[in-house]
Amino acid sequence: MIKLEEVTKIYPPDTIGLESVSLHIEKGEFVFLVGASGSGKSTFIRLLIKELEPDRGRIIVGGRDLSTLRRWKVPYLRRNIGCVFQDFKLLPSKTVADNVFYALQVTGNASASARRKVDEILNLVGLGHKTNNYPHELSGGEQQRVSIARAFANHPPLLIADEPTGNLDPETSAGIMQLLYRINKTGTTVVMATHDREMVDKMRRRVIALEQGQVVRDQLRGGYGES
């Protein structure tokens, strides 16, 4: 699903984002990306959606080599990657349903069946009763569930989440994790950057630990801090 070969990203003048990172993530995996702030987690994620370009190395996502992917094809790449962010990134001027619908509209699918699909997904994340609310009328946890619904609307093979629980209390976080877990069960690969120690320890999934842009640990059923 994801393959990095000797990937290096340096922010000018000399801040290291990632340094010679090579790794392989299989289809259907659930991977935690852990590390302190500035360790390279966000750089990793932004490279995957081609929001950034690596200075060296090769990134392959879903069989596509990102370095040779034309600029105009980037939107098509992103439709196959659901993205969830710490700050939700919802369109403030659109209702909950329209936010999710937008992800379908960009693919050219604006049919009545797409509308029904939106309702289904929102029911699935437990927001069936708030479809016509605006994002600012929802709690943080609810907003994050909308953003997960949007990320999953196209049934992408890959879902990446950049600290999705970073702004949420532990109880709400657990609900979000539950949701990501269920999405992973449908066969979607999930990559989640986090520094939620408790969560990682509880889930016992593959953990990739980054430190100053380098992979310092890659453990199949790891915890946050163990080595």
Binding site: K89, L91, V106
Partner: peptide
Amino acid sequence: REVEIMKLVGATNWF
């Protein structure tokens, strides 16, 4: 910011 979000969701420039 809205434009940025649209791009992240996979909207083409013309869209």
